[in-house]
């Protein structure tokens, strides 16, 4: 199976939520959504973002929107005004997750627009 970046089959946007951030992952096809629902687990996201997020990862699903929404509990270095980090609002966390490498089945790739 070809190894591609998550960005090949999904979009993402992130923002701050208290001392953490949310990353909304938007699959670009039904096949991509079904694949990501099984493969893009909270464990996979936690491992990929290990140096950014120090807390738990929670996942919400929306089949109708083809969205997996991840809450990274501790990813802003304290959050708000207390953070010293460059990205104190988690604006770049969506693009960070889209860098994840995945072995995506060829039929999923074929049915998902670039």
């Amino acid at each position: 199976m070809p190894i591609v970046s998550l960005s090949r089959i999904a979009d993402a946007r992130s923002g701050d939520k208290g001392e953490g951030s949310n990353v909304g992952v938007m699959a670009r096809s039904d096949a991509a959504y079904a694949f990501l629902k099984s493969r893009l687990t909270t464990d996979a996201v936690k491992a990929h973002m290990h140096a950014i997020n120090l807390g738990a990862v929670k996942r919400y699903e929306s089949d109708s929107l083809r969205v997996l929404n991840f809450i990274l509990a501790d990813s802003l270095g304290g959050g708000g005004s207390a953070s010293l980090k460059t990205d104190a609002q988690g604006k770049t966390h969506g693009l960070a997750l889209l860098r994840m490498k995945l072995d995506v089945p060829a039929d999923v790739l074929a049915s998902t627009p670039e």
Partner: peptide
């Protein structure tokens, strides 16, 4: 696609967005 980008921004539980005047189900 451009709207969905914003719908998920700073989102928590998509089925239960709590506002002062009511709750909203984004998935509906």
């Amino acid at each position: 696609r451009s709207i969905l980008h914003q719908l998920v921004y700073e989102m928590g539980d998509p089925k239960n967005y709590i506002g002062p005047d009511g709750t909203a189900d984004f998935t509906s």
